[in-house]
């Protein structure tokens, strides 16, 4: 990536800021070494997606450092990012962030094209399909917590399907479903709460400030 492109990164606001396409400056070439690099035309939205995916990737890293009592039961912290992106920027961006996170995460942990990668991918794809429907729930009654729980259930459903159809075609894995479903409900609720809290935090701070002013006044 060239320096000049980085300069035009958006500030995470997600708005389609018109990129100030500088007139081709012949004295200073855009690319340091034109022969060996391929110029990629990137939009501010691309950068925004990449940045969100990077945040999700960071959460995945943190999560992998947390020991779990049962392999396969993970909090899925990266989904907090997916939920926030879904609410703020829509499903398409959320899908990009989620799938990029799965891909980049697998490269980072060296699990690309291993069963673990396909499990993550199946979970992410199923979550996204369910979120595509869940996002149309009336926002008056349903918030990020609902989205999160539905996505979490979809996630384990996708994973169990891959496990059953491909990895362990044994009816015995049904004994694990209650454990995974319980974990999905708990972590789904917690992740949804964190996402909702994050998205409401700005309004809340304003309310809080107002309240304090009232108390003082």
């Amino acid at each position: 990536m060239t320096a000049s492109i980085i300069e035009h990164q958006d500030l995470g606001t997600g708005t389609e800021e018109p990129v100030a396409t500088a007139a081709p400056d012949l004295a200073r070439p855009l690319i340091p070494n034109p022969q060996s690099s391929i110029p990629l035309s990137t939009t501010p939205q691309d950068h925004h997606i990449a940045r969100m995916a990077a945040v999700a990737l960071g959460l995945t890293l943190i999560e992998n450092a947390i020991p779990t009592p049962l392999p396969g039961v993970k909090p899925g912290l990266a989904n907090i990012v997916t939920l926030i992106v879904l609410t703020r920027y829509g499903w398409r961006v959320a899908a990009w962030v989620s799938l990029l996170r799965v891909l980049a995460g697998s490269l980072l942990f060296g699990s690309f094209l291993t069963p673990g990668f396909f499990l993550s991918l199946a979970g992410a794809v199923c979550s996204l399909v369910v979120l595509a429907f869940a996002q149309h729930l009336p926002t008056r009654w349903f918030g990020a917590v609902s989205h999160s729980i539905y996505a979490a259930f979809a996630h384990i459903t996708g994973q169990m399907l891959v496990v059953y159809l491909w990895l362990i075609p044994h009816a015995g894995i049904t004994y694990l479903i209650p454990i995974f479903a319980t974990a999905a409900l708990i972590f789904g609720t917690v992740n949804g709460l964190i996402a909702a809290r994050f998205m409401n935090s700005k309004n809340e701070m304003l309310i809080h400030e107002n309240n304090e002013r009232h108390e003082i006044g």
Binding site: W141, F142, G143, V145, S146, I149, L185, R197
Partner: peptide, 11 residues
């Protein structure tokens, strides 16, 4: 307070 009625129903 971030949990809405529908969220409670979902849970």
């Amino acid at each position: 307070q971030h949990i809405k009625i529908g969220d409670w129903l979902t849970i």
